[in-house]
């Protein structure tokens, strides 16, 4: 495990050193960026709407029952922007995009395509890792901003339409505006930026270290997704403590 962490740290460092070549690889960055956005937008929309809805459904009746209906917007808004949107979207991207990255690079490794790159003096980190790292690090925070807005809408819709809560949309958003500050949204977006780096590095590392045939590729994909999710959850706790200053 420690060897893997060390290799991933080294891969990340090499990718950072190679960032100046990202401009040369811009068409690949845009290709990946389009792939991430296009493939995930609808899913992000659905997921975040229903996450907002279910949080409102879980917290709304309890708060209303205790005459705290004015706090529903704040609670739902805060939970989504600080925690649920960045974590859930990162997990979605780990499953959707991280797995694809590990499979593509893993199959390139197994079928000697990466060896072919090296014989042409083309650095696989420059060619494969940097475009993926840059595109996911830009795309995921943007998706999270979108997810926050849609999540709030989901929460507002449930608060308005559910008889047990029955809070007007204007009241929901007024309370949300009172409680949620711009720095709360920024914290969530910053977290997702870190998680994006984790997903890219873990997935590319798993792809580059794939051994064996199709079974090896399958193993790499599973490991990429599971390891990404575990690291996201652990890092979420650490980042939350750091960002809250507790």
């Amino acid at each position: 495990m420690f060897q893997n962490v060390g290799e991933m740290a080294l891969l990340f460092w090499r990718a950072i050193l190679a960032l100046p070549v990202a401009w040369r690889q811009r068409h690949k960055v845009f290709e990946q960026f389009f792939e991430i956005g296009n493939a995930s937008l609808l899913m992000v929309c659905l997921l975040s709407f229903f996450i907002g809805a279910v949080i409102a459904l879980q917290t709304g009746p309890v708060l209303v029952e205790r005459s705290l209906s004015s706090a529903v917007g704040g609670v739902v808004g805060m939970a989504i922007c600080r925690e649920l949107a960045p974590v859930m979207m990162s997990i979605l991207i780990a499953g959707r995009i991280g797995s694809a990255m590990a499979a593509e690079i893993g199959s390139m490794r197994v079928y000697q395509e990466i060896d072919a790159l090296r014989t042409m003096n083309i650095n696989p980190v420059h060619y494969l890792v940097v475009p993926r790292l840059v595109s996911i690090a830009v795309a995921l925070p943007l998706l999270v901003v979108f997810a926050i807005l849609v999540g709030w809408l989901g929460g507002a819709t449930v608060c308005f339409s559910n008889n047990q809560i029955a809070i007007p949309i204007q009241t929901f958003y007024a309370n949300l505006r009172d409680v949620v500050e711009i720095k709360d949204v920024a914290n969530g977006v910053f977290k997702s930026f870190i998680f994006a780096i984790v997903v890219a590095v873990v997935s590319c590392h798993q792809g580059l270290t794939t051994r064996g045939g199709p079974r090896g590729i399958g193993r790499s994909v599973t490991k990429a997704v599971v390891n990404s999710i575990v690291m996201i959850v652990i890092l979420d706790y650490i980042l939350t403590r750091v960002l809250l200053g507790t």
Partner: peptide, 26 residues
């Protein structure tokens, strides 16, 4: 240059892009 047993062509690129890869990347 090396010609691999499997060819080692990049499956995500066209034949033309594969052949010109060294020149375009460098």
């Amino acid at each position: 240059a090396m010609v691999f047993q499997s060819g080692g062509l990049l499956n995500s690129l066209t034949v033309g892009e594969n052949v010109g890869l060294y020149l375009s990347e460098h």
